[in-house]
Each structure stands twice: as C-alpha cells, then as structure tokens.
Write a protein that binds this DNA or RNA. Structure first.
Lengths: 196, 196
DNA sequence: GGTTGCATGTAAATGGTTACATGATTGT
DNA sequence: ACAATCATGTAACCATTTACATGCAACC
C-alpha cells in the first residue's frame, strides 16, 4: 500500500493539509497502523493532484502560516475504493526495542531499565491518546472504532506484560553483570564497524 | 538498526546460513520483531565478512544443496554489543490489513470476512509456532523468552479481540451494502491510478 | 507433472527517510 | 533566550523489495 493510497484514505475522512495528514499518522487515528514522513507525504499529494485524485485549495490563517487543504475527488474515491479491494500485503514490523530486549543479558542493567520504562511510558501515552480519540469522535466511523479498539487491546496487553515481567528481566540482567555472558566489549576501539 | 546488526544478532545465537537467518525472521524467534529478505541478507553477510565481523565455512550436504555457514567473530561480538548500547529507533509498523479494516464500511462484506478470517488464522498459526518454540528451547536465553512471551500476550489479545468483534463489524458492512456510504466505484474504468 | 523446500546470489527499480531551507508565533 | 508548534517543500542518499537466474529432491 503506497503513500498515495494512505493519503487518499485520510482524505476520505476530511479535507486536510500535508501537515495534518502527517499528524494523523504520528498521533492521530492511524498512529498504530502506518508511518509516513513529510518527505513522502508532500510528493504523494502532488502526484494525487496531477492524477486528478485530489484537489487543493489555499487557506490563509492569522498567526499561522498559510496552508494548502487537499480534498479527495470522485475519481479519487473510486481509485481508493479499488485499492481496498486488493489483497492486503503482510504486516511489516521493525522493532529495535524488541530486538534489543531479546539480548537483554548483554545489556547494561541501567540501559535495559531505561528502554523498558520508556516503552511502558510510550504505551501509556498511546493508550491515553486513543481514549481521548474515542471520547471526541462521537459519530465514529464503524471501522475506525474497531481498529482503535484493537489497538487498545493490544497495547494494554503489552503494557501489562511489561509491567508484570519488568523486575524478572532486570534481575537477570543484573546477575549477568556479575557473571558476564559470551559477549564482552573489551575491544572498545573497534566501534561502529557494523553500522557504517 | 541495519540488516548487518540483525544478522549479527542471529549469529550470536548459533552459526547459520543466509537461508537459516531468513527463516529466523520468517518463522523463527524474530518473526514478530523484524523482517529481512534474501536480497538484503546475502549482501549484508558479505559486508560482515569484509569487515571481519563474521567468518564463513562451506558445508557439504547430501540430498541438499551445499550451504555456507556464517559465524560471528570476536570483533563482531564487540561491534554487536556496541550496537545494543545505542538508543533504539521508534518502532515502524505498516499494516495494510488494519488500514483496510479502518474503512470496513467501504468494503464488500465477503472481502471483509476474508481478511478478518485470514488474520485470525495467521495469529493462531503464529501462536502455535511460538508455543512450539517455547517447548523446544529448553535452555532459553533470558531475553528470548521475555520477548516471545510479549509476542504471545499481544497476539492472544489481538485474536481474542478479533473473534469477539468479528460479527459486529460484519453486520455493519452488510448494513452498508444496502445503504451505501460516500464511496461508490461506479467509474470502474479509472482503475489503478492511485497505485502506479 | 506441479509445487514446495532447500540453497545462493545479483541487479534494477522502487520507495522512503534524512537533512536541508525558511520563517512566524507561542510558551518556558 | 530557547524550544516547540505550525507550515511547505526539495534533493540526495539509503535500504529494501522484486525479479531474475539456477537446480536438485521430495511429496502429492
């Protein structure tokens, strides 16, 4: 699913600027579904304009920069609807945090605690945002509340698990510090070779 | 976190071929954490060799193609350990399925049922795999079982939610078919403009 | 006879992120 | 003062996917 389709999806909900579309993927209703950066959104919107799938109008604001609001066209609606009929691609997840936690015994205890706590806090913020969203959105689109509910169920399960198992994992990491595992970073001069 | 570091992480667990590393991300212990294709793994392994972070030896097999087993070096261990100290990047999720479900009211009922059921089946397969993994892996690395447990908790919550709310969502989609929403694909000739 | 699993690799094309460039306003 | 929010866009770079190329063994 390309960014154009993603933008079109946001535009079926309401007119929006590139900035607002970005926010929808950052902290809005699509936050746990997809990501999209400015560098991909703005070019995508221009492509939608050329293809006649969206229209734009400029809106002046006071005490704010002007913005360009995009709206989906009839052609755009048809194209979007068709994209929805296709077979969805498999989910793609990339979580550095989970990858690091997998190697918990090789992590300094303090760093491990930090990433665990950051993650717990992040889930709680996300859950708060979702709860707010659910309260505001009075005439909720059917699918929107379903997907939000799924996000809430999943995030709640994750945060519960993390809180329940935090101490156990930290105890292991501490034990490993006294009795180090296979990996020891003695050769501190060989830095960054794997990341170039 | 680049693919080289990901490969290095797999290699800290045991020697492996490119094919086996791929399997670790496809159906192995990293399946719910990251994805990696052959096209990225093989070049990454060669880069690891040139950097001296991994070594390779060829292994002949009968009734099977020969394979090339990679092992992490001391230099590689140090580099990997250092990568783990870094601040993890934010998770990246891209789920076409969730995006489509968001627009459930614009989906034909049959298609909606299909993607819901496929997703439920996929979660159950993943849960089965994880349970197998937990049984086999007798001397489990601390982090590995923690991360697997988190995956299980999250997937279980997701599948429970999907089963509990499946009927409600489908009922809505059916209702929308009799009384169609904003989007109607009358102009069926305008296909694929958004996906080019 | 067709598909799946094993096994490695390359090259082209795609697609997206990161960084840059700019600038007013509001809050700390 | 400094950081953050609002707001748009471009361009270079990077990473990854997809498709191609090859081939044997096992199973249905």
């Amino acid at each position: 699913m390309d960014i154009q389709t993603l933008c079109l999806g946001v535009l079926t909900q309401s007119e929006a600027s590139g900035y607002e579309i970005h926010k929808a993927f950052e902290e809005g209703p699509f936050a746990h579904i997809h990501t999209a950066s400015f560098g991909s959104i703005y070019p995508a919107l221009n492509r939608l304009l050329s293809a006649g799938l969206a229209e734009a109008r400029d809106v002046e604001q006071d005490k704010r920069p002007d913005k360009r609001l995009y709206a989906i066209t009839e052609l755009g609606k048809a194209a979007f609807c068709e994209s929805l009929q296709r077979q969805p691609a498999a989910d793609k997840v990339r979580s550095d945090v989970l990858f690091m936690l997998f190697f918990a015994q090789h992590l300094p205890r303090a760093h491990l605690a930090q990433i665990l706590d950051q993650r717990i806090a992040w889930y709680q913020e996300s859950l708060d945002r979702m709860a707010d969203c659910a309260r505001e959105e009075v005439p909720a689109p059917r699918g929107a509340s379903f997907v939000r509910g799924l996000g809430q169920a999943v995030y709640q399960a994750a945060v519960d698990y993390l809180i329940a198992n935090r101490e156990t994992l930290l105890a292991d990491a501490a034990a490993e510090m006294t009795n180090p595992g296979i990996i020891t970073p003695e050769s501190a001069t060989t830095e960054s070779a794997a990341t170039q």
